[in-house]
Nucleic acid binder design. Sequence first.
RNA 1: GGGGCCGUAGCUCAAUUGGAUAGAGUUCCGGACUGUCGAUCCGGUGGUUGCGGGUUCGAAUCCCGUCGGCCUCGCCA
Length: 601
Amino acid sequence: MSEDSGPLYLRTHHCGQLQAGDVGSKVRLAGWVDSYRDHGGVIFVDLRDREGLTQLVFNPQTHSDSHKAAESLRSEHVIAVEGVVDHRPEGTVNQGLSTGEIEVEVHQIEILSRPESLPFELSEGAEVSEDLRLRYRFFDLRRPKMQKNLHVRHRICQIMRSFLDERGFWEIETPFLTKSTPEGARDFLVPARLSPGEFFALPQSPQLFKQILMMAGYDKYFQIVRCFRDEDLRADRQPEFTQLDLEMAFVAEEQVIEVIEGLMQKLSQEILKIEVPEKFPRLSYAEAMDRFGCDRPDLRFGMEIKDIKAIAENCQFKVYQEAIKSGGQVRGICVPGGAGLSRKELDELTTFAKGFGAKGLAWFRGDPDKLYSPLTKFFSQEQLATLTNTFETKCGDLILTIADKPDIVAKTLAALRNSMAERFKLIPQSSYEFCWVLDFPLFEADTETQKPTPMHHPFTSPRLEDIDKLQSSPLETRARAYDIILNGTELGGGSIRIHQQQLQQQVFSLLGIGADEAQSRFGFLLDALRLGAPPHGGIALGLDRMAMLFTGTDSIREVIAFPKTQRGNCLMTEAPSGVDEKQLAELGLRIAAPAKKKPPQ
RNA sequence: GGGGCCGUAGCUCAAUUGGAUAGAGUUCCGGACUGUCGAUCCGGUGGUUGCGGGUUCGAAUCCCGUCGGCCUCGCCA
C-alpha cells in the first residue's frame, strides 16, 4: 500500500472479513473499540464494525508508537489502523469468532474520535432499561443484536421485493398526505397551510389507492409502506408501522393465498433456514373461535377448548346452571402439569380471568384416580368421569373452566390458554406454525350501538352464497376475508373486494352511511367503480411483526430503528413537542389546551 | 379512560420489610502485568433513593399527588 492511498480510515476490509487465507496481507480496518485488553506489554483490541470483530495486536517491541497510542484506547473509541494479517499463535485461536483464526498486527493507528463517558455498557450480557436505550438510541443501535435485527429486517424486505418482482408485481407509491376517513382507527391529521382550516390525514393503509390501481389496470401491485393509526400502543403496535401491501386483479382468495404461502416459504428458507408446509392449515373463523377462543390461534401447542354444556346443565353447581339457562356457555381447557399450582396461584388466575370480564374461574385438579375441586360435591361420579374423559385429564393436570356469555368465555379461555402454555413451557422453541383463518363475519355488532360495523373494512366483499343475508341477517353474512397467523400473532389480513358499485352502495347503507355521505367521503371510489372495475383482492402483512417473530424478539421495538414509547413519544428526539406561534399562525391554528412542552429553541 | 409492575451510584441490582454512616458487581479514574478474548490483580472516585407533599422520634421502605418506562383491558375498519 502506497503513502498516497488516502486517509487511514479508507479501509480495505471490514471487521468480519479476514481469514487465514489473508495472512501476510497489508490491510486497513476502521471501526469501534469493542474491548481492549492491556497486558502491560502487548495490547489486544477487538475492533468492531457492522460485519463483525477483528482482533488487533499492538506490540511495543516492533511498533512502539502505535502501542503507546493504543494505551489510551477505551471502549467505543473510533479508530483506523493499518497492519499485517497474521496467524494467531497455536492455542489462541478463538472458535467463537468468524475471524478467530487471525489477528492484525498494527503498524499504524489513528484515533478518529474519543467518546466522553458512555451512558451504558454495550456488552451482550448487560441488560439496560429500555427508556435509557431509547433515549440514547444512537448508541443502543451499535449493539450487534440490534444490527442483526435490522439486518434481518432488511433481508426480509429484499426477499419480498425480488419475490414479488419475479411474479410480475409492480412497486407503486401512494400518498401519505391524503383524506381523512373517520371509520376505523383514529387518524393522524396534518394541517393544510394552503387550505386554512382543512386537514390531510396520514393513511391508515393505502387501501383505497391500491383498489383504484386495480381499476386502472395495474393488475399486480405491492408496496412496503408506512401506515399510521393514532391508537394506544402495545408491544406489537406502534402508531407508525410498516406493511407489505399488495393487491391483484382478476383473482379470488386462492390466488392471493398462494402468493403469500410462496413468499412465506421463501422467507422461512432464507431467513430461518427451515421448510414450512407448501399449504398452511386453514380454519374457519367459527372453528378457530370454537377450538381456541380467538381468531389468531397459536397452533404450536394443544390445550384446546372443550365444551361441557351437557355436564353443566345437569350438575348441582348453580354458576354452571345459570350460565347455560341464560344462553351462555361453560367451557374449559386442561393444563398439562397444572395441578402443582397453589391455592394462592389459583386465586391469582381467577383475578386474571376477571380481567377479561369473567365472573370467576372454576378448577378441577387431576389427583391420583380422581378429580379434586372444592366443587366436586356438586357433581355426580358420572359427571366427573365425563369431565375427565372430555379433557383427557391425567394425574397432575388442571382443568380451568369459565361459565359466561360466549364472547367472555372465548376471550378468557384464549388468554388462559396462552398464559398457561407460556408458564408451563408448553411452547416448543424455534417452531413456526402458520395458518389461515377464513370465513370471517362481514360485520360485527358495535359494542355500544349494536349496529353492524365492518369486521375487516367496508370494501370487503361478502361471500356470494351469503348475499341474500345482507338485508335479512347482516351479522350472519360471511366475508371473503382471510387472515394469516404465525405462532398466535396476526401477521396480516386481506380480502376480495367489492368491485360492483351497487353492492358497495348497499354495504355503505347497511353501515348507516347514506348516499350523500358515501359520495362525500368515498365518492372517488364509487366514481372509479362506475368506470369499470375488475374483481380484485389483496392482503397486507405487518412487516414489524414478521421481523419480530423471525428475530425471536418479543417486541416490535426491537426491529424498529427509532420506535416510540408506550405513550407515543420518541425519547431520543423528544417528539412530539410544541411549536412556536408563527408556525401556528401560518396554519390558522390556535391551541385550546396548552402544550406540555415548550417549543424547541 | 381503567387495572397491574417498576423508578436507589454512569449501568444492573441489594438494603434483614420503618431504624444508626444506603451496599455489591460492573463502568470510570490511577497503578501492576508480554498471548488475552466478559483478561487478571491492587487501590480510588462515584448517591437530591424520579419529583412534590404528608404520617412518624426516625422514611429508599407507609400514605397522597405528580412525572417517566413497561405489561394489559378498552381501543386498534
